[in-house]
Design a protein around this nucleic acid. Structure first.
Lengths: 235, 235
DNA sequence: TAGTGGTCTAGACCACGGT
DNA sequence: CCGTGGTCTAGACCACTAG
């Protein structure tokens, strides 16, 4: 299970195990996670380490710790529609739906001597017979970092999985600006909106752990995408 | 300094001390906080407790821990323009400006037999000779919880300080929806905007630690208010 | 009362940054 | 090399929840 000699900290290893178990349905909504004492025995590590892993899952909104009762799995909690466009497939799973991606544009271009791939994708959720479009994602990706990326079919492959598994590059941090904007006829058409209306838009960059810029992105959100924000007040 | 018998955890006490020192200028931008070892000696508590306090300040974006170097004070960091409307005066201090509040409406009303205060405030930042309007805040406050609240002059008093100090009620958690909207002539007039344009708006509730609803709020953001979002990608 | 998570101690070893 | 923060151990006591 855990590798005590790995460079990856134990609490990160545990966190990943628990997260994948939750997202893959080993634990279901409202289930209790094994207690911290049980996890101590199961993984042979101390409670401090376990608590650090669970605390981070808590921060992500995936579980909720309740004093005296236990740690609950929270799949469809308040925080599920926040900014985690990054894990669109997780978002879908949380809604018990399937993620759908339609590639609208895919072209390479040059700028300042470097080559890039521009990728425009329409993303949505599908349940039974209805499809709900959620966002239009525009990505600019440096081919110097991702050679031959344009050969991929992005409608069935997750961009970030591709980065991690094919190129061994791990998206780590994103820096975005959020702005309002008016819809355009093209956007209305793509998102299947009946009338022009104000929308939310975010744009920014994605970095690796060593602060290498690996993507510039713009995301336009359909009104179907409900932004919720929960935060603690520092005092 | 710290009271080991207080019901308030030591790490919370320490966090509050450090935060107020940072915001009051005892430590300045780019300064190093005392090292964890120094803080151990100074406060006579273990490193674990100190690290918990600093980790939370880190999460708030007030400090940045750097391996091998120390913990830096970060006043004007990326996260400073995020959703922390709550601490408008801190936001101002971080920008080296003064917070300004103008009361636009103040009236009591009844609904379902309960009495409320409706408060509309225009909020901005002032530096030297220029004033920049940032938000229009509309609050609905239950007078059952805050008796006689309407007697206050809100242009010079912080609403949350009032809650804490006069009523001993501590805002703890907020749950908001974020939406785009079109400006109206009234809003343009109040925010001194030249033309109609899409804006951001958030609305929701503020709760205490025991989940008592103490405020309903709506905030309309001027384009001067730049929303930035920084987040880690879970993987 | 038994079991849970919340806080805290007093250590240890490590990886990183700069001298 | 030393001082910094990062991880981890093996305990302890407490507060909360529920039967």
């Amino acid at each position: 299970m855990l590798n005590k000699n790995d460079v990856i900290p134990l609490y990160v290893q545990l966190k990943r195990i628990l997260r994948s178990q939750i997202l893959n349905g080993v634990f279901k909504e409202m289930d209790l996670l094994p207690s911290e004492t049980q996890l101590m025995k199961e993984y042979q590590i101390t409670r401090t380490t376990i608590r650090k892993a669970i605390a981070e899952l808590n921060k992500e909104g995936l579980v909720q710790q309740v004093h005296g009762k236990g740690t609950y799995v929270r799949l469809r909690e308040t925080k599920d529609t926040v900014w985690n466009f990054q894990s669109f497939s997780d978002l879908a799973r949380r809604h018990n739906q399937k993620p759908i991606t339609k590639v609208l544009e895919k072209e390479t271009y040059s700028k300042d001597g470097d080559h890039f791939l521009k990728l425009v994708r329409l993303r949505g959720l599908k349940s039974e017979e209805t499809t709900t479009w959620m966002t239009i994602d525009t990505s600019h990706l440096p081919l110097k970092i991702f050679p031959n990326l344009e050969a991929n079919n992005f409608s069935s492959t997750s961009l970030y999985e591709l980065m991690r598994e094919t190129y061994n590059i791990h998206p780590h941090y994103t820096n975005l600006n959020i702005e309002p904007m008016m819809s355009t006829p093209l956007i209305c058409d793509r998102l299947e909106l009946q009338e022009e209306q104000p929308l939310l838009r975010s744009s920014g960059i994605v970095l690796t752990e060593s602060n290498v810029e690996i993507e510039r992105i713009e995301i336009i959100y359909s009104p179907n995408f409900k932004f919720k924000l929960s935060q603690y007040i520092h005092s």
